[in-house]
């Protein structure tokens, strides 16, 4: 199974991972269009929980837990595991009960309070060979492990 490894010592705090995460999940997949005409905001809409404290920074995405608490807690089965073992989210089924946010030990699920559903959760970029965040990290602070 694919897994993203984090190396906080290498994180530059550039947030390119977030910018490219949002772009990869946009309609146009075009960086300019994504943030100009599609109206996404890199810091809000990415699937990454970016943390900063003093000069230390790191980017955390869903760990695709082995015994995923979010799947167990989900009231609708909007959170599910696919055949590859990736934990995915079905926006159509989600009712925004925030049970998943309550139990995710990494705090990586972002709520969309307005539309009452999970806004974003890392999907490991589906059929992309390498997730967009990993591909664009300039310093290998996030790396793909297979």
């Amino acid at each position: 199974m694919k897994r993203i490894e984090i190396n906080e010592e290498y994180c530059l705090g550039c947030r390119l991972c977030e910018v490219h995460c949002v772009t990869a999940h946009s309609k146009s997949k075009d960086i300019i269009k994504t943030f100009k005409s599609e109206g996404f905001k890199p810091l809000v809409d990415s699937c990454i929980a970016f943390e900063k404290c003093g000069y230390t920074t790191f980017a955390l995405q869903c760990r695709h837990c082995h015994d995923a608490p979010c799947i167990e807690a989900c009231l609708t089965s909007a959170m599910y595991r696919d055949k590859e073992g990736t934990v995915l989210h079905d926006k159509d089924k989600c009712v925004g009960c925030w049970m998943c946010i309550m139990v995710c030990p990494f705090g990586v699920i972002k709520p969309d309070f307005k539309n009452k559903r999970v806004a974003s959760k890392c999907d490991l970029c589906g059929d992309r060979e390498t997730p967009a965040c990993v591909e664009h990290c300039p310093n290998e602070a996030i790396k793909l492990k297979k």
Binding site: A49, P69, W98, I101, M102, V103, C104, P105, F106, G107, I109, K110, P111
Partner: peptide, 10 residues
């Protein structure tokens, strides 16, 4: 302010 609630649970 529920955004990262699960970390408290952890």
């Amino acid at each position: 302010c529920i955004e990262r609630a699960g970390i408290y649970g952890l």
